[in-house]
Design a protein around this nucleic acid. Structure first.
Lengths: 342, 342
DNA sequence: TTGTAGGCGTTATCAG
DNA sequence: CTGATAACGCCTACAA
C-alpha cells in the first residue's frame, strides 16, 4: 500500500489533477466549494506531498554564493571545506554553489563581488565579512532584488539580512570565562587576552562576555588589556613573548581570534607551567593537536559542518519564502577538551 | 544552462537512454566498447546523477523501525521526539518509520518485536537495548535476512550489527571526570556516584572512564562506590539522602544514569553548598532548568537530533549497501554549562 | 547487445 | 473556473 498521490486526491474529490494542484499550491482560480472538497479529500486520505517529485517537476534550481574572506588562519579553509562537503551531499539537491574569496577588510571588492552576483541573478548569498556602510547599502540592494542574504559567522545586525548563522559570541566569551575561572580554581594572577583585527565585532563580543563573567564571578583574577596581534605571526610572537616575560604571575591566556598556531608554538618552545590555563577558539588542526598535547586546556568551537548545512537550508527556505525550524538552525557553542575530542 | 541529463549522455555517446542507464547502474548486457564510449561521454559533459529523480523512478521506499525501551526518565521521550521530527523533515524522503516501545530488560518482548518486523519485511532496524543472548541470536537472523541493523545509544558489540550510533561512554566518563576534578580546583573530599540499572553497559563504561581520570589526575579526591537507585524515585531519594547525611565532606556528585529529576529536587530542598560540584548526563527539561538555576554545574550530553538523523542516514546507506561518511556520523560528547546552554 | 515506450508524483501550459 | 496533456530526470518492462 503506497502513499496517496495527487491522482488519488483527484479521484476522491472528483476533480482533475490540475485543480488539485491549484489548491495544493494555493493558486487562484478555484471556487471556494471546490477548494473545500479537495481539502477534505486530502484530509481524508492522509495525503502528504512528495517534495522531491515537486521539485523535479518544478525544475527549480537554486543558485547560491558564499563570500568568504581570505583570512589568515585555518578556520576559513575549514569552513570552505565543510561547504564543499555539504555541496557533495544530498542537502544540496538541485542547487548550484559558488564560493568566492575576497580580501578581508576591503569593502570595495566585497561590494563589487556582490554586485556581480546580483547581476548574475543569484538566488541567495551567505556573507562572512565585517559590517561596513558600503556593504550595508549593497545588502539593501540585494534584498530589493529579492536575493536571500544570510550573515555567516559574524553578524551584520544593522543590515536587513534575513538570518545570522553562527554562534552568540558574547555567550561564547562567557563560556570561555567560566571555564577559565573554574579551571584556575581559586588561584590568583593575571590573564592575558590575545585578539586579532579580523572580525572586529566577534572579537569584541567575546571579550565583553569574558570580562563580564570574570568581573562578576572571579573578581580575584585580573584580566589584562587585550594584546593585538594584527594577524601577523611576527607581531603575535613579539607581543606575547613580551607579555610572558613581563608577567611572572600569569595564570591564564585567552586567545579569542586567529594566531593560535603562533601562540601554541611559543608556549611549547618556552615550556608552559602546568598551572597555566590556556583557552582558544575554533577547533583546527593546530588547536586539536594542542589539546592532545596539553598545550591548550579548552577550545570553544563552532561546528563548520553545521554552519555550512544550516546556511544552505536557510538560504533555500528564504528563497522559497517558507519558515525555518529555528531550533534546528541554532549553532551551538561547543566546548572541546582533550577528553571529548575523540 | 542546466545540468546535463541522461539524454545528453545518450546523444553524446550515440546510444539510447536504456544503454546509458545500464552503464550508469553497472547492469550487465553492454559491450565493453559501448561502456567505454558512454563513460567517456559522462566524463566529457560532466554529468552528475539526480538522485531524487532516480529514487522517484525507482519507486523505492525504505521501511525502518526503531525499537526503544519504555525507560524511566526524560531521555527516551526526547529521543522519540527527535525521531518524529526527523521523520517530518526531508531526511526521511521516501521512507516509512515505525517506532515501537518495549519494556526495558525484557529480552522476550524485544525479540518478539524484532521477529515480527523481520516477518513484515522491514529494511532496517535501530535497536536501543541491553545486549542479551537472545537478542544476539535475533540480530544474527535479521542480518541473514538482509535487514540493516544499527545499535542506538548503547552498543551491541558482540553482535554483527552494522553500526553503532551514540557516544563513546568511556570518553564521556573521562570528560565528566576531568570537569569534576578541575571544577573542584584542588579541594579535597568525596564524590558520590549515582547510577541506575538501565543501560548497564553504558553506565559501567562511564564509571570506568570517570574513575580512570580521577585516579590518575586527581588522586586527592575519593570516589565513593556507586549508589544504585534502581530507577525508582523513592529508592533514589532514600539512598542519596542517606549518603548526603553520612558524608559531611562531600565535594561532588556524578549522576551517570537516570534519576536526575529526583536528585535535583533533593538538592534544591536540602540546599546545596556553593562549592559542591554536580555533574549529570543528558540535557532534558530537568537538567536544563537545573543548569540555569545553578543546581547542576555541567551536563554531558549526546544530541538526540543528531542521533536520530544519523540513524536514518546510516540505515539507508546500509540497505543500499553504500558507504557512509563516518566523520559526519560521529556523535559528539557535548559539554553543556549554563553559559553555552543559550 | 541495444532500443522504444511508458511510468514515478508533481507542476505547467494551453484550451475550453 | 476547470481539465487534458506534456513535461521534469530517471528507471524498467518488453521488444527488436
Amino acid at each position: 500500500m503506497s502513499r496517496p498521490t495527487v491522482t488519488d486526491i483527484a479521484k476522491a474529490a472528483g476533480v482533475s489533477l490540475a485543480t488539485v494542484d491549484r489548491v495544493l499550491n494555493a493558486r487562484p482560480g478555484v471556487r471556494r466549494q471546490t477548494i473545500q472538497r479537495v481539502n477534505e479529500a486530502i484530509e481524508r486520505i492522509g495525503y502528504v506531498r512528495d517534495v522531491t517529485a515537486a521539485n523535479l517537476a518544478r525544475q527549480r534550481r537554486y543558485h547560491f554564493a558564499f563570500v568568504l574572506p581570505e583570512a589568515p588562519g585555518e578556520f576559513v579553509p575549514l569552513l570552505r571545506k565543510a561547504l564543499e562537503e555539504a555541496a557533495a551531499s544530498s542537502i544540496i539537491d538541485r542547487t548550484d554553489l559558488t564560493i568566492t574569496s575576497v580580501p578581508p577588510n576591503d569593502p570595495h571588492v566585497i561590494v563589487k563581488t556582490l554586485q556581480r552576483l546580483r547581476a548574475d541573478g543569484i538566488d541567495g548569498v551567505a556573507i562572512f565579512s565585517p559590517e561596513t556602510p558600503r556593504l550595508r547599502d549593497e545588502i539593501a540592494h540585494l534584498k530589493e532584488s529579492g536575493v536571500a542574504v544570510v550573515a555567516l559567522i559574524s553578524d551584520l545586525p544593522n543590515t536587513n539580512r534575513d538570518h545570522f548563522i553562527g554562534i552568540d559570541n558574547i555567550a561564547a566569551g562567557r563560556t570561555a570565562g567560566v571555564l577559565m575561572g573554574r579551571f584556575l580554581g581559586g588561584a590568583s594572577g593575571a590573564i592575558l587576552v590575545l585578539t586579532s583585527s579580523m572580525q572586529g565585532r566577534a572579537n569584541a563580543e567575546r571579550r565583553l562576555g569574558f570580562d563580564t563573567v570574570m568581573a562578576r564571578q572571579f573578581p580575584g583574577i585580573e584580566v589584562l588589556p587585550s594584546l593585538e596581534g594584527h594577524d601577523d605571526p611576527d607581531t603575535i610572537r613579539r607581543v606575547v613573548s613580551n607579555a610572558l616575560d613581563r608577567h611572572g604571575d600569569l595564570a591564564g591566556i585567552y586567545s579569542l581570534g586567529t594566531g593560535n598556531g603562533v601562540l601554541i608554538n611559543l608556549l611549547k618552545e618556552r615550556g608552559r607551567p602546568d598551572t597555566l590555563v590556556v583557552i582558544a577558539h575554533e577547533l583546527t588542526h593546530n588547536t586539536r593537536r594542542a589539546l592532545e598535547e596539553g598545550t591548550l586546556d579548552a577550545v570553544i568551537n563552532q561546528n563548520v559542518g553545521h554552519i555550512a548545512r544550516s546556511a544552505l537550508r536557510v538560504l533555500r527556505a528564504k528563497t522559497d519564502d517558507i519558515d525555518i525550524l529555528s531550533a534546528q538552525e541554532h549553532i551551538r557553542i561547543e566546548i572541546v577538551l582533550r577528553e571529548n575530542l575523540y
